[in-house]
Design a protein around this nucleic acid. Structure first.
Lengths: 216, 216
DNA sequence: ACCTTTGTAAACCGAGGGGTTCACATGTGA
DNA sequence: TCACATGTGAACCCCTCGGTTTACAAAGGT
């Protein structure tokens, strides 16, 4: 037991990987169980780490919670910006472009299981930790808002859509695309199929085009 | 101490009012603190009742929780139906009627503090107690859905709106009316003023009329 | 070789909370 | 008047959990 075990998976000791293992386990359990139901011992066990090490890295349960959620939010922001740059590129046909955008928005952001769980956690604990809500607002919605605004502006400038107020248009697009699916997924349990995503997307885009379509 | 005290407010003992006092205190604290953070002793104190009495009425913490939330949901259903009958009556002008409907919908249902807290609770604990989510779906959304469907159908039949699919139209109307406000209020903290409600209402209705207006 | 750093495993402490019991009080009905 | 049902309040048991301490083990640099 003192020789070669635990060599390939570097769990010897003295590595900052411990910290990351703790963070991974912590966010997973916090997000699944909520703050109060989560035990520090459980996190330590899940991370394959002693309680002592955990308390060395993060001072106490609350600081662990705040740190790990905020770290998750910033890593999330990176996901947002890269995805926005990737998938929201130039589109020839407005309808096709909006559908691609909507599909990606719903599938990658709205329904991604970890993001759903994170939103649930923030809604649940937000009243107790307002700073987290503030961080969420900055990283998530605002990023998407500006990215989509940019897209819609481009479509407007090219004369493919008629959008007097881009800000409002983004609100309406997100509402039409996300509202139903968001409700289903937040209250949970019922899984959402790919066909559902496709339906929500097309339906939302068509409603949006009913308002802003070149037809006017 | 054995004569006339506690006559008007019947808190002597031996009354089922105790049960109601417990229920009131319980739902208030559960909704504010969540299940795990709530202590049975706290509920008993808030209700002005001994723990023993509480355990006599409701067997244990979990049964208290489930019972009291489900009772709240059914009492909620009554609120829904009466409000639907009251405020969603016949409307002469579609825009004015929809605005009145929207204002009431947002103000009375979406933003009512107790309903917000209840939705938060259901989102937070839904994964642990699916039965509650099911009860919520039955009492809340479905009631509103059918009530509003009826209203829109009437407007369609009178030729004031052009609505090919009423089901979809209700989804879109609720999305346009509620999405933004719902997000703001669920993540919490930021209060929503009456002016905000008015803005959300008018904006949502106008967007809806952009899709379904007689103009086509 | 030695000491420091980083880690583990387990025991331990104190607080809080779910749930029960006990001794006692007070209205109600026969 | 006496039993009974209902309720009180406080003590109590036991477990979980946050957080600490102790004893020990393995690098790794000098």
């Amino acid at each position: 037991m003192l020789d070669g075990t635990e060599r390939d998976a570097p769990s010897g000791h003295g590595w900052p990987e411990k910290r990351q293992a703790i963070a991974r386990a912590a966010i997973e359990i916090f997000v699944r169980e909520g703050f109060a139901r989560t035990s520090v011992a459980g996190i330590a066990a899940e991370a394959g780490v002693s309680k002592r090490t955990l308390y060395k890295h993060y001072g106490d349960k609350e600081r662990l919670f705040l740190t790990v959620v905020e770290e998750t939010l910033t890593s999330l922001r990176d996901r947002f910006v890269t995805a926005a740059k990737d998938h929201l590129g130039d589109v020839p046909d407005p309808r096709a472009g909006l559908i691609a955008l909507g599909r990606d928005w719903i599938g990658s952001f709205l329904l991604a299981p970890d993001l759903v769980a994170l939103r649930r956690l923030l809604i649940a604990e937000g009243a107790h930790y307002p700073q987290l809500v503030e961080a969420w607002r900055r990283t998530g919605p605002d990023m998407i808002q500006t990215a989509v605004e940019e897209q819609l502006s481009r479509l407007h400038e090219r004369g493919l859509l008629c959008i007097p107020d881009v800000r409002v248009a983004v609100d309406r697009l997100s509402a039409l695309l996300l509202y139903t699916a968001n409700n289903r997924v937040l209250f949970g349990i019922v899984p959402i199929s790919d066909e559902d995503v496709e339906r929500y997307t097309i339906d939302g885009v068509d409603a949006f085009l009913g308002i802003y379509g070149p037809r006017a």
